[in-house]
Design a protein around this nucleic acid. Sequence first.
DNA 1: CTAAGGTTTCCTGTTT
DNA 2: GAAACAGGAAACCTTA
Length: 573
Amino acid sequence: MPSASPLYTYSSVYTEPQTPYVLSGEIRNNETDCIRSTSTANSVSSNNHNNITNSNHHCPGSNANLYNMDLKNGNGFSGTSEYDPVKYLSAMAEQSLTGNFTRSLFSSSCGNRDSHSTSGNMYTNIEHYDRGAFSSLSSSSSIASSSPPLSPASSCFAYPNTSDPGSSNDFLTNDNASYHVTSQTNPNQPSNFLRNDSPFGQSSTSSNQSIVGFTESRTACKKSYPSCPSEQALLDSDRLLSWTRHHPENWSSSDVLDWIFFVAQERGLDMQDFRGENFQNLTGAQLCQMGLGDFTQLEPRFGRIIYEMLKNLLCGVSFRKPLEPDQMSTQCEPMSPFSSSPCPPTKSRSSLQGYSHTSYHGVETDVNSNGIAQNETSFFKQEKCTNLQSDIDITSYDFDLDDTPCLASSQCSDQYQNEYGMYPMQYPPQDTPPMRTPCCYPTPPFTAQLPRRRPGRPRVKGLIEEERATKDKKVKNQHLWEFIYETLMNPAYNPQFLRWENQRDGVFRFVQSEAVAQLWGGRKNNENMTYEKLSRAMRHYYRRGILERVEGRRLVYKFSLKAMERVRENRHH
DNA sequence: CTAAGGTTTCCTGTTT
DNA sequence: GAAACAGGAAACCTTA
């Protein structure tokens, strides 16, 4: 049976998802739409964890096991104190609003203070990580609130949830927002693995990997940070990015919400005003039928942005039906590193029905399950995507820029800056090498900057490997300040680890300084990296004019104009 | 082999 | 008292 949920083809390394989208809010949706079920059926196997491997992409210093172990023991949260989901969710909600955890809710897991803010209320690192792993402990809890969502990477999107009367705890917090906690459990959910099709890359750890213990540091109890967000966090992120695996018209209402908040996050919309929850009852099909007016009616201030993003989304990506394994072998041409799909569109289009294929730069053909062309079913497609290069670019975090055409439009910047008082995301420098390091920089689950097949004959293997080796070398020899910038541009780490204070001026702040240090250490194959050392290296940049001092503010740095220009220049090239 | 650049490590002292 | 900051000094690593 043809899939009703065609997959995006956004990366040659991103394989077909094998875990059905199970948003914790799913229980509230008895609509359990055919989309989801077909998508599940279409998956190779639900919860198939066979891909769990002791990947070579080991994260040095990674401590996911310890991390999860702590969770199980309750240490990750509060030592011997009991875990209180209400308090925890309240803190999370607060954190989502303020960026700060309330320290008083928890006790330190390390015994040493690990304050990262001058106010002292920034939660400790380990516990902060637990935010991502929270769902594993609280059993796929979902927050429902009117508060803005957290980063997709932080795996804590939040939106109102009202239709699940069972297995839930509704409660009120001091901001009078109604929260909703489900108590669904998923005993089958392993705590220590990464699917190799995770949107966060191919790093995998198995639960029997060695545990990296805490390391003594001269000045503090140095916590062992995973070089990447916790596996559970990544899994949750993956789940929350389920919409990336379906054509928008096939999105469930959960997908719609996830996407809406993803957009909000990506565009840096003002969450105080953002009314994403108004989209909560819409399916993807309905969304695609909506006009600009509908969007602005639901979300007066940012509706246009969402409208444009959806439009561009529909224009800028390719979809393909996932192939059966035997089809893969018989239909596919040898995989080219420059092609975004294992199969050329023409082939898959001609042989498969029930999915839509959208060309990179425009709509080509839409075929429903009856083989009827559906080009005109959505007004977006009727517009033939003339606005592809228009005022909004689909923000993406491009980590392999060699193969990616740039859709970013310089026009968008000023307009949106003026209209919405915000600044568009900047891209990493064009010469930024891809993330191939063990610290597993996440590959974004969806990018509109799809790699386009280069003209001509694909390179021979040796050259490819050579290229890869060169890139690996580049990664390893990447400068710290470039790494910092890149991390800032990475939604998996911004705002969780680092965040912009003022992106235009290049002012940023370490949120989890030690975690960033561990990331940096992972990049440099140095497990002993600490924030202390990293900051020393940062201070060298003052003299070299790459960073400027930000007086009186701890953990805050500022890229110099020179550095920012260099980054932009690199991007330009 | 050498020099240079860019950290990394260690350290002491200061500020928050 | 602890974390963060500041900066000197030397070691280390990579590249040219």
